[in-house]
Design a binder for these strands. Structure first.
Length: 207
DNA sequence: CAGCGGATGTGCT
DNA sequence: GCACATCCGCTGG
């Protein structure tokens, strides 16, 4: 398989399916960002979390549709970008059929293209001591890739400024699963669900 | 290294 | 008025 053949667009139908399968399938995928001016950044997804429906008490849609979470109710394969703690933008991929609120949070990526430009973006906000500090964490990767609320609802299947492309498949033996991070407000049962998935041994997975 | 407090804007109760 | 799908820098061991 040539490089060009394994790195390509997803089908829309892929994002309309089961959130956990999509989360699994996004590991190894390429997140591509084209900056105004023509610079292209690319990174491999190495850690994700699934937030699935109104019954999931960790999910933003747990209390129904609001102005903020409306993108989760929208068409699959689009971005849901929101501000947390007044400081950090977090990127999600909307999944499931339109009307069913679910999304995959991108928690960590590994730089593929434009790593030094990503480092420059991050150094405006803090000290980058190791390479992993560039994109290990959901708030960090959006800084590195210059993703903010302007990209909310972007179509990641057909988009150019921000899009997803297939990457080399990750063998099942390299997939790790565990509880989601930072959801102490959810029920014990929902906190315990192993809906965080990551590539085992990858240096860019968040701590 | 672990632990902790501050930053800082917005959504929802 | 409080909580928040986080991160940074400082403190003490």
């Amino acid at each position: 398989m040539s490089e060009i053949d394994t790195n390509r667009r997803f089908e829309r139908a892929f994002f309309a399916g089961d959130a956990l399968k999509i989360a699994r399938g996004l590991l190894g995928a390429r997140l591509v960002r084209e900056l105004p001016g023509g610079v292209q950044l690319a990174a491999k997804i190495v850690e994700v979390e699934a937030y699935i429906g109104q019954d999931d008490t960790a999910c933003h849609a747990r209390n129904g549709r609001t102005d903020r979470n409306a993108p989760m109710f929208g068409p699959p394969g689009h971005a849901y970008v929101y501000l947390i703690y007044g400081l950090y933008w977090l990127l999600n991929v909307v999944t499931g059929p339109e009307g069913f609120p679910a999304a995959i949070l991108i928690r960590a990526v590994e730089p593929i293209e434009g790593k030094e430009r990503m480092r420059t973006h991050r150094e405006k906000r803090g000290r980058v001591r190791a390479d992993r500090d560039i994109t290990a964490g959901p708030g960090r990767l959006t800084q590195a890739l210059a993703i903010d609320g302007d990209l909310n609802t972007t179509d990641l299947v057909t988009g150019s400024a921000l899009r997803l492309e297939k990457g080399a498949p990750i063998p099942e033996g390299q997939i790790a699963r565990g509880p989601r991070i930072g959801i102490g407000y959810a029920t014990e049962a929902d906190q315990a669900r192993p809906w965080r998935l990551w590539i085992a041994e990858n240096a860019y997975v968040s701590k």
